[in-house]
């Protein structure tokens, strides 16, 4: 199984550190490996740190942190050999780097699979930063490479719609997620929404209260995997992530995975059963658009926290 890796980008002060710590605190037994550009400004809350050595910092809950410095490829290869193996990797890009370039490099390491590019934006300052004489181009480039833009510090802005509209024009197809203190569900940052369960579809919806919604359905007969991806990745559908298994017309199941605007199709693992799970902001999911995929409208089930 390739190791899923999510890249988080964004300029200084956008809230990357807050997000990293939030995710570590909500890893829920999953072994999250955090890669930071440099150990200098270690973005980990001290109470989470258990032990440090030169290469690896051990964190609470079986999580780890390492720095990749100028040798990303080697560091990724090293992480993949850890035992126990991490379940997923979060790579924090430096403030001036382009997450898209890092994503390209991830594709060069055979044991990894890109799980998404999340760029954080400081709701208060992002527009000024994007217009800055020196870093404006860098900021706009980062936003343009995002699958999802996490518009942070929305509590500090009066009308975040203006910022969101501006972001929509800047970041292309990226989904925009508002948040305070980078409180974003684990399943949004990582494609972990799909849990291997009894019937293929089992979603733990812990997010409803935060304004997120998770849906599950089985695709209608004749819906091809590429159609499913196209609909789920369409901006008007309003999904942040989708993952599941869709029958191929020629037989067998394909695995589909969508993060924001980007989707991919791969062979399903043995034993997979048809079904798709998705997550989005409750007020943004377009159920009618999704209904096209489901075998009938009623089959879209809203998973409530149990």
């Amino acid at each position: 199984m390739p190791l899923p890796i999510t890249i988080i980008g964004g300029y200084l002060g956008a809230g990357k550190t807050t997000l990293v710590n939030h995710l570590l605190r909500h890893a829920n037994g999953r072994r999250l490996a955090v890669m930071v550009n440099e150990f200098g400004a270690l973005p980990i809350d001290e109470d989470l740190i258990e032990a440090e050595d030169d290469q690896i910092i051990s964190l609470a809950g079986g999580c780890v942190c390492c720095s990749y410095g100028e040798d990303l490829v080697s560091s990724m290869a090293m992480l993949a050999t850890l035992r126990p193996r991490p379940d997923m990797v979060l790579l924090e890009a430096s403030g001036v780097s382009f997450p898209g370039a890092i994503a390209g490099t991830v594709g060069l390491v055979p044991t990894y699979k890109l799980d998404g590019v999340v760029v954080l934006a400081d709701g208060e300052t992002i527009r000024a930063q994007a217009a800055d004489k020196y870093i404006g181009g860098t900021i706009r480039g980062q936003l343009a490479q995002a699958d999802m833009v996490l518009l942070n510090k929305t509590d500090l802005i009066e009308d975040d719609d203006i910022v969101r509209r501006w972001l929509n024009g800047t970041s292309g197809e990226a989904r925009i997620v508002r948040s305070m203190y980078a409180r974003v569900p684990f399943d949004v940052v990582f494609g972990t929404i799909w849990r291997d369960g009894k019937h293929g579809v089992e979603v733990a919806d812990r997010y409803h209260a935060d304004g997120y919604e998770t849906l599950a359905f089985v695709t209608a007969p004749g819906v091809r995997p590429d159609q499913a991806v196209t609909v789920c990745a369409d901006a008007t559908t309003g999904l942040l992530r989708a993952k599941g298994f869709v029958p191929r017309p020629e037989g067998g199941l394909a695995q589909i995975q969508v993060v924001g605007r980007r989707g991919e199709i791969a062979d399903a693992p043995a034993g997979a059963e048809p079904g798709v799970v998705c997550i989005g902001l409750a007020d943004q999911i377009n159920r009618a658009a999704l209904a096209v995929l489901a075998d009938d409208r009623n089959s879209i089930t809203e998973r409530q926290a149990s």
């Binding site: 040798d71 990303l72 490829v73 080697s74 370039a101 890092i102 390209g104 490099t105 060069l108 390491v109």
Partner: peptide, 16 residues
């Protein structure tokens, strides 16, 4: 670029 070069460096005898 460094990222494209890195996976090849160790195989072609360049020290890390």
């Amino acid at each position: 670029g460094p990222d494209a070069m890195a996976p090849l460096g160790i195989h072609t005898g360049f020290d890390r």
